[in-house]
Simulated assay, not measured.
Amino acid sequence: MYIELVDETEQVSEEIIEQTEKLLKFAADYIKLAESKEMAVTFVDNSRSQEINLKYREKDAPTDVISLEYKPDEEEFFFDEDMEIPEELMAELDPFIGELFISIDKAVEQAKEYGHSLKREYGWLVVHGFLHINGYDHYTPEEEAEMFGLQEEILTAYGLKR
């Protein structure tokens, strides 16, 4: 999986950036995501997080991670309108799955609040956002149990335990 990593803040350590890339590749393998997939991760401050949250979610407040799932538009590929296009084919034609925006300010704040390391908090945010852009959600108790269970499995298997 190709991952574009950008640190708009110029404050994220090389260790966290490396962990992010390795953890995302690990998570992709864990859920058996095709190797051809691509995504982006941008580290931002609270101010930028708030701008993005307002633009895409209509919430005027900073948040820890914003996940923008990308779904290819069949019309982009000029298929005959009567043609049924298998999901696998669409996935191969357009490998970009989405992007994450992670607030470094919120990560620091939440690591302190939850009493765990900054590495663990960044890992939690990365996997949480990654699962969102791969179709997982937590709107219902059943969805929450599935997503948070898988998230904890991935983090534990990777070695980022509580």
Rank of each mutant, 00 (worst) to 15 (best):
N134V: 07
F148E: 15
T42F: 10
A157I: 06
E81C: 01
E92D: 13
I133T: 08
T140I: 11
A145M: 13
E21K: 13
Q151A: 11
I17S: 08
F96H: 03
V44I: 13
E146Q: 13
A27S: 12
Y114A: 03
K119D: 15
A91K: 14
V127Q: 08
R162Y: 04
L93W: 01
Q110I: 11
E21N: 07
Y70E: 13
V44W: 01
G149D: 09
I52S: 03
L24P: 00
F26P: 01
V65N: 05
D73W: 10
H132I: 09
I17G: 05
Y114P: 00
E113W: 02
N134W: 04
E35P: 14
S36H: 14
Y158A: 04
E14Q: 14
G123V: 04
V127F: 02
M39A: 13
L100E: 02
R120Q: 12
L150D: 05
P95K: 12
F78Y: 13
D60F: 11
E121Y: 07
K119A: 12
K22N: 13
F79R: 04
M147R: 12
E74W: 01
Y56M: 09
E113F: 08
A40R: 11
A61H: 12
L160C: 11
E146R: 14
N53W: 01
K32L: 10
D82V: 01
E38S: 07
R162L: 11
I85Q: 02
E81F: 06
D64A: 15
I97D: 07
E153G: 04
V65I: 14
V126H: 05
Q50S: 15
Q50K: 15
P86C: 03
E142A: 12
F130R: 00
F43K: 04
M1F: 11
Y139G: 15
P95V: 10
E121G: 06
